[in-house]
Design a protein around this nucleic acid. Structure first.
Lengths: 205, 205
DNA sequence: CAGCTAGTTGAATCGAGATTCAAATACCGA
DNA sequence: TCGGTATTTGAATCTCGATTCAACTAGCTG
């Protein structure tokens, strides 16, 4: 028998298991047994904690987005130079590679959002939060005089998030000539025009 | 009994039915019976024409992409002024609204492409074709001296297609403040920087 | 108009996955 | 150590969609 765990702990495990299962089998094509197997449990145990599977899936998506967003905030947290910060922000929004679990899950949702209000809201909220994040970076840079914004910060921020999203899909689909580094360069080409800053990656200390 | 049709005609019907069914129930969550119902047939008849359901789904996606691309080419075909052509090209890449069937289907594939090589190839190919399309517009404008390209045409074209893609997803997810018109404006803001052209929509005759 | 063929139906069967639940068991507190 | 309880199992059952196929029929052909 699988190790017994407290309700709270097990629910966290299950969210993680659902995450993995959805990446393998699709956000909508995933089966209860697949989630149970990922968690090292039987289907009955999963139902014990989540009588309604949909609730688990939504929580898994929600947790995945929080994780994605928190990780980005953490990566850019320590950086003070606006140009460097913008570059790091861009990089942190792209998948590491075609198998990046966090981004894979986000991509799963794009289509479902057209049919499912909850998923649509989750994705829209994430988009808007990322836009705000970029706006902060852009306006700080403008206040310091290192960015000369070609448009209002919201417009630029939206376009940056949009580019990230789209190139994320390309990387996940294994585009032969768009890997994460290439994607960063493409987005930076826009960012340079929009900020008037050359945005050269700093060579380490 | 449903009207009898030739093999070829019926297959076209079924591709259309699969298209509609996938939009309602998801590219991967769709069921044989749902496709049969959309086509006004029974499941047996569908299997008669497509013993392997996957083949039908792939053909439906393929046809949807062809249609999407052909429609764009047709819309921009008659326009000769490069600036106007670019604006129309951008507009033609976005959904009419959240219920646009063509784009809905494309969005369904994004997630699946991470797991399915065939879908990944279809999407990648479409992306590259759209990039070529934009490159032609951009280079023609540059040759006429009305565009001053800030980067090579491939970079700009890729970014334009990426922006379209991403805002397509936003529209489909019913973002409260990004409708098709707003999306066009956002993309145009980038296009102006990249081409050095004010890109003002011509007021019709 | 008779016969043939291809397309379609509908009922039967099959199988996979969801759901239920009594029994088993690990862990906790007394 | 000994209940008591929360968690997990595993088998039984239920449900639904896929698959098969013999019978049926529309439309063509001679």
């Amino acid at each position: 028998m699988a190790q017994r765990k407290s309700k709270a702990d097990r629910r966290l495990d299950l969210i993680d298991a659902a995450h993995r299962a959805m990446i393998q089998h699709g956000a909508e094509g995933v089966h209860l047994n697949q989630i149970a197997e990922e968690a090292g449990l039987t289907s009955g145990a999963v139902l014990y904690h989540y009588p309604d599977l949909r609730e688990l899936l939504i929580e898994a998506h929600h947790a995945g987005m929080e994780r994605f967003y928190e990780r980005r905030m953490k990566k850019i947290g320590g950086v003070s130079d606006p140009a460097e910060k913008l570059i790091i922000t861009i990089r942190s929004g792209l998948p590491d590679g075609p198998d990046d679990a966090g981004v894979r899950l986000l991509c799963e949702l794009g289509g479902a959002a057209g049919r499912n209000r909850v998923y649509a809201t989750l994705l829209t909220t994430l988009f808007d939060r990322q836009v705000s994040m970029y706006q902060t970076v852009l306006e700080t840079g403008a206040a310091h005089g290192v960015f000369t914004l070609a448009h209002d910060s919201e417009t630029i921020a939206r376009n940056l998030v949009a580019l990230e999203d789209a190139y994320g899909y390309r990387v996940i689909a294994r585009h032969h000539s768009i890997d994460p580094d290439r994607a960063v360069e493409l987005i930076l080409d826009y960012a340079r025009l929009a900020t008037g800053n050359p945005l050269r990656p700093a060579d380490g200390p």
